[in-house]
């Protein structure tokens, strides 16, 4: 019972956290038509910004140069700003590229950021990363830390979903949809496509930065290994799993994927080899799920049927 509760809590925590990423990706891809294969970069930018802002100034063996020792909420805001800044930096030159070219360039930018974090020890101790990242004291609320952070992640997810929903229901959202459906027509009625796409890209990266800060609080550690391209693939799989375009589907897809991984991780293994095989099995099943879902698209078929009825 206790393990089930623990797994449930972990799924709620990381599921909500990654749902923020999937929701943002959904806005970029399903609404804005942009394939961002560098999602992890904005996540990493947020986490590192939070860690650097809240970290004490370096001493001893530390190789990082800046630690501002500010309260957590300053770090949280800084994380959003950092992700936004990185989105402006990367979006401005690349968004005129189309489809897969955009996918590859964003992917490249994410790899570059990762490489910078590994090689420039002045940012965050290189591969060692920043440990003991500060986080607000959860005991004030009288609940265990895991519950508080799970609730915080859930709240961030709800806030993101609400904000995006409001945005998409507004005339602005309809302009975004118009561009996705027919660029020429949208341009003909005077919508500035490049500008709208850029705005969607930047706006949707802000919650990713916040999620990064929360992730740093939960793990109390940031290092380049945590922010590899696997995170990007993970979020994409979740998006595909949930079926794009509906906010609820996106969230359920992410939760299902996190749950699936947590259940496999909770199985005790006798040997290293068995654990290794289980880890590979996780990859294989994830991959097959991916292929099967894309091929038969059960979720969109379901949605179509509901519409027809």
């Amino acid at each position: 019972m206790n393990t089930v509760f623990q797994i449930g809590l972990t799924v709620l925590m990381f599921g909500s956290l990654f749902s923020v990423l999937t929701l943002s990706l959904n806005l970029q891809y399903a609404r804005g038509g942009m394939i961002n294969f560098g999602t992890v970069a904005y996540f990493a930018a947020g986490a590192y910004a939070y860690a650097i802002v809240t970290q004490e100034p370096p001493h001893g063996l530390d190789q990082y140069l800046v630690g501002l020792d500010m309260p957590w909420w300053v770090g949280f805001i800084a994380a959003g700003i950092a992700a936004m800044a990185f989105a402006i930096l990367t979006g401005w030159p690349t968004l005129r590229l189309r489809g897969e070219y955009l996918a590859l360039t964003t992917f490249a930018f994410a790899e570059m950021l990762n490489s910078l974090l590994v090689n420039e020890r002045g940012i965050g101790n290189g591969t060692v990363g920043l440990a003991n990242v500060e986080r607000p004291d959860a005991n004030i609320l009288g609940l265990s830390e895991n519950i508080v952070y799970a609730l915080a992640a859930f709240a961030l997810m709800l806030a993101t979903a609400y904000a995006f929903r409001r945005l998409l229901a507004s005339p602005y959202g309809r302009a975004v949809d118009a561009i996705r459906d027919d660029e020429v027509a949208a341009q003909a009625i005077g919508k500035d496509i490049a500008r709208l796409r850029f705005q969607v890209f930047v706006i949707s990266s802000i919650p990713i930065g916040f999620a990064g800060a929360l992730y740093a609080m939960i793990t109390t550690l940031v290092n380049p290994d945590l922010f590899s391209a696997e995170v990007t693939f993970f979020v994409w799989i979740a998006l595909v799993l949930g079926g794009e375009r509906t906010l609820l589907g996106v969230v359920i897809g992410t939760m299902a994927l996190v749950g699936f991984q947590e259940v496999i991780r909770a199985i005790p293994f006798e040997s290293v080899r068995a654990a290794e095989i289980a880890a590979s099995a996780e990859d294989i099943v994830t991959g097959i799920l991916f292929i099967v879902i894309l091929r038969w698209q059960p979720f969109s078929a379901l949605a179509r049927r509901r519409q027809a009825a």
């Binding site: 394939i35 489809g99 897969e100 996918a103 693939f233 994409w236 799989i237 595909v240 290794e276 095989i277 880890a279 590979s280 099995a281 996780e282 990859d283 294989i284 994830t286 991959g287 097959i288 799920l289 991916f290 292929i291 894309l294 091929r295």
Partner: peptide, 22 residues
């Protein structure tokens, strides 16, 4: 469409990598 096939190929990469690992 190419985007769907591109993402599917990520799935294929996962399967092959997992098999090789196993």
């Amino acid at each position: 469409g190419p985007a769907v096939v591109l993402i599917s190929s990520v799935g294929v990469a996962y399967v092959i990598a997992g098999l090789m690992h196993a």
